[in-house]
């Protein structure tokens, strides 16, 4: 089912669309020791590369010392830590209390948005950018502004109706899962997909 596909793909995908697994494979095997042009300028890829590189170095050092392969769970822990590190890069203020500020990862919100859009039959979410609707530290905290690109199903439903459905699902999910208000949702329809056409695997290509 489409939902599970995009959900699992999301787990290892960076906000720019690159795969964390591919980055790891390239670094671990030495085939991608040098960053390519995109990776040199993309902040997400740079964070991930630096993190994976540092952890790989630590693993190699430890392996040489102990002469044993790393446990398989280690890979998951490393991927989890690097994913979390990337997500720490873009935190949006959700609320401010006497105890301090509460923030949420923009990427975590994007996952919620894309998942909600995918629940509309035939719709496939592609790129999603989330930011605060106003200046941080003002009443705009907790009000989000989202830009979302979509693939919509080919007729007979009018595209505006489909987009309206997406809008209400996304607003509902942001309220329910994030506890924030969707101040603005800009939708870009990128493509129309034939019903019964080839199954899209979702995500960026």
């Amino acid at each position: 089912m489409a939902m599970t596909t995009s959900d699992s793909a999301e787990g290892t995908q960076l906000p720019c669309g690159r795969s964390l697994d591919a980055l790891w494979a390239g670094l671990a095997s030495g085939t991608a020791a040098e960053p390519d042009e995109h990776e040199r300028t993309c902040p997400h890829c740079r964070t991930a590369r630096d993190g994976l590189g540092a952890l790989l170095g630590a693993v190699h050092g430890a392996r040489a010392e102990r002469d044993e392969p790393p446990p398989s769970s280690l890979r998951e822990r490393i991927m989890g830590a690097v994913r979390a590190e990337v997500r720490r890069g873009e935190l949006l203020p959700l609320a401010s209390t006497p105890h301090g500020v509460v923030t949420i990862s923009a990427q975590a919100v994007a996952v919620v948005v894309r998942f909600a859009a995918d629940t509309v039959p035939g719709v496939r979410a592609r790129r999603c950018a989330v930011q605060l609707a106003g200046e941080p530290g003002t009443s705009a905290d907790g009000v989000l502004q989202v830009e979302l690109s979509l693939v919509v199903p080919a007729g007979p439903r009018p595209i505006p109706d489909v987009v309206d459905d997406v809008r209400s699902r996304v607003a509902g999910a942001v309220d329910r899962s994030v506890g924030a208000r969707l101040g603005r949702l800009d939708v870009v329809v990128e493509d129309v997909l034939d019903a019964g056409g080839p199954d899209s695997t979702g995500g960026a290509r």
């Binding site: 979390a84 509460v102 949420i104 990862s105 998942f115 899962s177 994030v178």
Partner: peptide
Amino acid sequence: VTVAVLDVDPA
């Protein structure tokens, strides 16, 4: 006490 939510279960 500052809290950062890094992941939300979308389902």
